[in-house]
Design a protein around this nucleic acid. Structure first.
Length: 156
DNA sequence: GCCAACGTTGGC
DNA sequence: GCCAACGTTGGC
């Protein structure tokens, strides 16, 4: 059964931007540090290898979708939760009962031009994205129609 | 840098 | 189990 999904994943470019992903070993990173249950559930329960990702730069001017990536692993416990040195350490989490999960994300493309949040908001289809309904959620599902609209815009 | 939105924590 | 206090996200 084909269950290709699409996602939008936010990252602050000052912390880890799409160039960092492009330059990473194997152009792949662990999407560590997500500490929100809803976002975790998407990674843990819904993401599949091969799913498409819209890579979104947050907390910058202007916020924008800047490229794409691919989900490249199944979910597994986020190692940083067990690392007391890490800012993502969670003392309430144990190896037997991990609280936080992540997936690997692999670079796919950098757009020739960023598609800004403002541009998305002015688009009849893309203005309905969950991104705008759940403003603070760092991972949101993207419909196939939305995914196709993004790529259509890029061809113009 | 401000602050609204909203998720989490913890006292009761 | 409620909810006030608190902390964080992220657009602006």
């Amino acid at each position: 059964m084909n269950t290709q999904n699409y996602w939008l994943m936010k990252s602050e470019p000052d912390v880890f931007g799409i160039e960092d992903l492009k330059n990473a070993p194997k152009q792949t990173t662990m999407w560590e540090g997500v500490r929100n249950y809803e976002a975790r559930n998407f990674m843990r329960d819904k993401m599949k290898i091969g799913d498409g990702v819209l890579f979104y730069h947050s907390n910058v001017t202007p916020p924008a979708i800047v490229g794409t990536a691919i989900i490249s692993s199944n979910s597994y416990p986020d190692p940083s939760q067990f690392d007391s040195e890490s800012e993502y350490a969670d003392p309430k989490s144990t190896e037997e009962k991990p609280r936080w999960y992540l997936v690997n994300v692999t670079f796919k493309s950098r757009f020739k031009r960023a598609i800004t949040r403002e541009e998305l908001q002015s688009h009849p289809i893309l203005s309905e994205m969950m991104l705008f309904k759940r403003n603070r959620l760092s991972i949101t599902p993207v419909s196939e129609e939305e995914w196709n609209s993004i790529h259509k815009i890029l061809e113009e």
